[in-house]
Amino acid sequence: MSDENLDLSRRDALRNLGITLTLTTAGAGVVSAQDAAHVHHLVTQEKTAGPYQPKCFNPHEYATLRRLSELIMPADEHSKSAIEAGAPEFIDLLASRNDELAHIYTGGLAWLDQEIERRHGSTFLAAAPEQQTAMLDLIAYRKNESPELGPGIRFFAWVRNMVVDAYFTSKIGMDYLGFMGNGAMSHFSVPQAAIDYALKRSPLA
């Protein structure tokens, strides 16, 4: 079987994962989730080598997108923000490969600057944090739909969907949610404590 699309280190790791699987079918519990994690770790390492160079947006647009990303999915005491989760480069990369998407973003970012300039006399990036959030409070809700805000509301829905997508499909976002799957187990079982927890909170107890 040809594996030319996979690099050597990952291929070896996957092979090891396969071996672990066949050797431990008689064992108990989670056996090789660590191996799976090892594979993922290797790939992540390769991807994060060196700072990302935007392929679609100009430096001002990209900086604005970074600011929007952290406003939409900020850091807190449990996890980092959408910037660390790779949202700006995810959006830039896709926009560089799809003109329709690029136009949605370049148009939307320009609209945002024009609109906030009119209100506060500065670009979105240069505006004070309260001015930035006041602007988002207008365009983050469909109830504010008006001829004036319509383009911003539609643009923000795009950014929000894609930042949330990028956030929760990243390792940071998955850890925040507590996703524990994608492993390899010799046996499947469900913790009784989890069943009891849900039953007790339901009307079925």
């Binding site: 790939v43 991807k47 995810f90 490969r97 799809n98 997508d165 990028a166 390792k171």
Partner: peptide, 16 residues
């Protein structure tokens, strides 16, 4: 076993 973040487009497809 491929996680979305192991692919640069995360599953959106090469052209989103």
């Amino acid at each position: 076993h491929v996680l979305p973040y192991e692919v640069d487009h995360r599953g959106a497809g090469e052209h989103a």
